[in-house]
Write a protein that binds this DNA or RNA. Structure first.
Lengths: 206, 206
DNA sequence: GTCTATAATTAGATAGAC
DNA sequence: GTCTATCTAATTATAGAC
């Protein structure tokens, strides 16, 4: 029984996970290209060869990391609340969800947002990300058509600006900080939907 | 007289500028670390040594590029319109100006936004950028105090989100596209100030 | 599953001729 | 101001022992 509870010598999956997490941290710190397998080995307390036992290449580590972010974002779109109801509500659900995914998978999404498409792995990640953006843009279009949102600004521009705002959170948000994720998502939706200008008639809080 | 008009053999400044522009384009395409002096030389039709005649290091090329973006952003804050009048108007001037700087200096600002602080040159650039953000945050605070903007969201969060939206423009804006810079700046301010939600009473365009 | 040793290549930068 | 040739160090990845 203890062999099932105690970590066994092999620990399949565990070491891969640890390598992935240490690698992603380093990729963010130094950039993917500037991070050598030697530095990763040093931080892991392993030799370079040991890493190659778990991953066939540096590229494969990146691929696993990017998939983790993309899987979580794509899962959002298949949720019940993203598929039924008013477009404005479905959109709000996706925007709020994106903030949560971004924080829950902070290092993975951070890495995803820095990918530029110089390898096949990066290009495939960009394809999936573009498809996600396309789906969100369609939601903005629908919300405009149903009269919930203004439609005088091009929906593609709106989608890019709003997700620019959301994505920029990876640049400064730290989970241990003051701001809770829910509060942050509230702030994003407040600005995107109602804007910052003080109305002529002062707001009365509910 | 012709020696003043015709390009002379030396062409001081001209070659440096050309190297700078080719380098920045490549840095954006491949990333700074992944861009070798060898491919720069290839794209310039020069040898590596020739580049070292104009710049003492790869790092110095980056420094010159980052300064170009930072100088333009900082100049915004010293403009008359950023220093007098209602805080809301000064803020609008700076936000609008930032969109213009971003488009006018697109490659340089793009590079600036990818800097992570791994060399002294990068850290100095980050220091200047943080100082700029701090000044804009102060404008948001002032605009809240004078009653022009809502003040229920932390000004630092607001500044980061709004500049996240503005900065994200480098990811997709192409000057040759449909969207003019003025229109783009209008869109950014419309979303940030008034939001996307359709008011209960339909808008009447002026 | 991890190691040492090393192969094969490429990097940033310099020397010195022209 | 540009070149060829080269230096030194670092890179990704592999071979083969344990």
């Amino acid at each position: 029984m203890s062999e099932l509870i105690e970590p066994r010598r092999g620990r399949p999956g565990y070491d891969q996970r640890r390598i992935l997490e240490v690698a992603v941290t380093a990729f963010i710190e130094f950039g993917y290209d500037a991070t050598s397998m030697g530095v990763l080995a040093e931080r892991l307390g392993l030799s370079k060869s040991a890493i190659y036992h778990h991953f066939s290449s540096k590229d494969e580590i990146l691929q696993r990391a990017l998939n983790e972010a993309l899987d979580a974002l794509e899962a959002l779109l298949t949720d019940e609340q993203a598929r039924a109801g008013r477009a404005a509500d479905r959109l709000a659900y996706v925007l709020r969800g994106a903030v949560h995914v971004l924080v829950d998978k902070l290092p993975f999404v951070t890495l995803l947002l820095r990918v530029r498409g110089n390898t096949e792995v990066e290009r495939e990640a960009l394809r999936r990300r573009r498809e996600f953006d396309r789906a969100v843009t369609a939601l903005f279009v629908e919300a405009g058509q149903e009269g919930s949102l203004r439609s005088d600004i091009d929906a593609r521009v709106v989608e890019r600006l709003v997700f620019g705002m959301i994505n920029s959170i990876v640049e400064w948000y730290r989970p241990e900080g003051r701001e809770s994720v829910d509060r942050l998502a509230d702030d994003v939706l407040a600005i995107a939907l109602d804007g910052l200008r003080m109305p002529a008639v002062a707001r009365v809080l509910p």
